[in-house]
Amino acid sequence: MNQSKEIIASVVSAAHEVRNEQRTLEYSDQQVLVKVERGGICGSDIHYFQHGRAGMSVLKQPMIIGHEFVGRIAGAPAGSGLRVGQAVAVNPSQPCNHCQLCLEGKQNLCREMRFMGSAQFFPHVNGGFANYVAVNAFQCVPYADDADARVIAFAEPLAVAIHAIRQAGDLVGKKVLVTGSGPIGCLVIAAALAAGAAEIVATDMSERCRKLAQQMGATAAVDPTDQQITAKWQENGGYFDICFEASGAAAAIASTVGFTRPKGRIVQLGMGAASTEFPLGPLLVKEIELAGSFRFIHEFETAVRWLESGRINPLPLLSAEFPQQQLVEALETASDKNLAAKVQLVFA
């Protein structure tokens, strides 16, 4: 039996065309109704706002944005284990769970993934920036009622960071470089520190981002154009055991091979151009392993637990909060990297 509820949703229809509008949310008795409390604005939300697309995902119809959000259960099916009023973080991943990749435990690579707030498929998959949203029970990860919702709203980007450090292997005692100190890079720094890295150096062109990197646990934060420092990283075949490339910038991607020691590993999680020049020869002769890192699997629940317990404090990254009514101002602030790292929307 289907149910319906009138909601206020934050909708993008084209570049620079966003607004809050009343919609009718239709959902089944088998879905969970969540009253959304707050959500973090991600880079993909900004791309839809600025360009009407995020990478190869192009808007073809109006879509509710947002995939980093938390709330409280407003209704749940019997047997779900969820109760009304319970605080939950919502995992935006909706894999098919029956393809070969899903059956192999690689749900993040599912070719039929319905990721919330994504225009990859048509019809698009609506996101969570609305005062109410309907999701599947398996997407809901309960957390302690007394935990700070501002903190738990970082679960999705932190899950991306935790998946990246798992792609890197054992970090205990390792020397780590993180290129790009935006929100994801800074969360990689915090996750690498929690995983036992001995030294974590961050790079970014922005002084503000470098300061944030150090607040999040970086041993040092360096301007990548400082050749006096970066030249030393290339001595004796490379200084770092592991390099996380989190910027997606062509120059940063190319630089990682020189900075990584022989038999080291590079984890690429920054998304930039579809293709770039890359020093393949040096990679081969140094036997460096290159690993991609895309989204997350069960790391989402791990992220909730790390945030809930205080193992990681993401609040230095929270630059501003806006009520849903100030959607445009929130997106404009989040788009200005000189002003903001992470901006959150608060829902009534």
Rank of each mutant, 00 (worst) to 15 (best):
Lys106Ser: 11
Gln139Cys: 08
Ile200Glu: 02
Phe294Glu: 05
Ser247Met: 11
Gln268Arg: 06
Phe322His: 08
Val70Arg: 06
Asp148Gln: 07
Val222Ser: 01
Ala254His: 15
Thr219Gln: 01
Glu207Thr: 14
Ala76Gln: 08
Phe122Leu: 10
Leu177Phe: 01
Asp45Gly: 08
Gly237Ala: 06
Ser247Leu: 08
Phe259Ser: 04
Ala249Tyr: 11
Lys263Tyr: 15
Ser4Asp: 12
Ala190Ile: 05
Gly105Gln: 02
Ala246His: 06
Gly258Phe: 01
Ser93Glu: 09
Ala273Gln: 15
Val125Asp: 01
Ala340Val: 09
Met56Asn: 13
Leu284Met: 15
Tyr48Lys: 09
Phe115Gly: 02
Ser255Thr: 05
Gly173Leu: 05
Cys209Ala: 14
Phe69Tyr: 14
Ala251Asn: 15
Val125Gln: 14
Tyr48Ile: 06
Ser319Cys: 00
Glu308Tyr: 13
Ala274Gly: 11
Ala291Tyr: 09
Leu318Arg: 10
Phe129Cys: 00
Asn313Tyr: 04
Ala192Phe: 04
Asp45Pro: 06
Phe121Cys: 05
Gly75Thr: 07
Leu193Pro: 03
Glu301Thr: 13
Tyr143Arg: 02
Lys35Pro: 01
Pro323Trp: 09
Lys5Ser: 05
Leu59His: 03
Phe122Asn: 10
Trp306Met: 15
Gly310Arg: 07
Asp29Thr: 13
Val201Cys: 06
Gly169Tyr: 09
Ala76Val: 13
Gln214Thr: 12
Thr203Pro: 03
Pro95Thr: 05
Ile46Met: 10
Ala134Leu: 04
Glu235His: 12
Phe115Leu: 13
Lys232His: 13
Ser93Phe: 07
His124Cys: 12
Cys209Asn: 13
Ala231Thr: 13
Ala9Tyr: 04
Gly127Ile: 03
Ala119Tyr: 00
Ala119Pro: 02
Ile312Leu: 07
Val34Tyr: 05
Val32Glu: 00
Tyr143Phe: 10
Lys211Gly: 12
Gly270Glu: 01
Val88Leu: 10
Lys286Gly: 01
Lys286Trp: 05
Gln100Ser: 11
Arg72Thr: 14
Ser57Pro: 03
Val343Thr: 07
Ile229Phe: 06
Val32Cys: 02
Val267Glu: 00
Gly81Phe: 08
Ala195Arg: 02
Lys211Ile: 12
Gln344Lys: 02
Gly281Arg: 15
